[in-house]
């Protein structure tokens, strides 16, 4: 999937992605419109399906509010690429099928507005001039991504589908 880069910094919190005053709803369109409303006010006006968010460290830190990744997904963002993610945000994104890729250097070498193509399953990030290898979800997270979402995984096979051979001590 191809699109343009929206470049953000380090420590983008869930309060920046979806401020507490805007997440008093489960309405998908209200969530879509509130995405990054104060941190990047032009975001929802200009984002196109297939665009990509690229950020630095600790993306999605803070609250467990799933409204944050949902609002990004509702804007049809193809993937969030960050140097690192907060744990709950990452898990929420995987659960709802929003592709997340860890990549230490993407936010340093890509620029706002760059054309980019992302392969969410392999983690390969390509621009007209360079290719980066990001780290896509693995382990249980990969199984959820392959199923499409956690809900789909539970519907088809449930937890039994995930039982792995136990660690031998």
């Amino acid at each position: 999937m191809s699109g343009r880069v929206f470049l953000l910094g380090d420590g983008v919190s869930t309060d920046a992605i979806m401020p507490g005053r805007y997440n008093v709803t489960t309405d998908p369109d209200a969530l879509r419109r509130a995405c990054l409303i104060e941190a990047r006010p032009d975001f929802t006006e200009t984002v196109q399906p297939g665009d990509v968010i690229v950020a630095g460290r600790n993306f999605g830190c803070g609250s467990s509010r799933e409204h944050a990744p949902l609002s990004i997904k509702r804007n049809q963002v193809a993937a969030v690429i960050a140097a690192s993610f907060n744990r709950i945000f990452y898990r929420n994104a995987v659960n709802i099928g929003l592709p997340v890729i860890r990549c230490a250097e993407a936010h340093r070498v890509l620029h706002d507005g760059d054309d980019v193509t992302v392969d969410a399953l392999t983690g390969v990030i390509t621009t007209p001039t360079l290719t980066l290898q990001g780290e896509p979800p693995s382990g249980v997270a990969l199984r959820i991504i392959e199923a499409g979402s956690l809900i789909e995984l539970i519907r088809h096979g449930g937890w039994a589908a995930l039982e792995e051979p136990r660690h031998v001590s």
């Binding site: 799933e66 898990r91 929420n92 956690l150 449930g158």
Partner: peptide
Amino acid sequence: LGSTDIGVVFATGKTW
């Protein structure tokens, strides 16, 4: 956890 994880616990009592 997020809401989807908790919703699944409401049904299965379990999580990973």
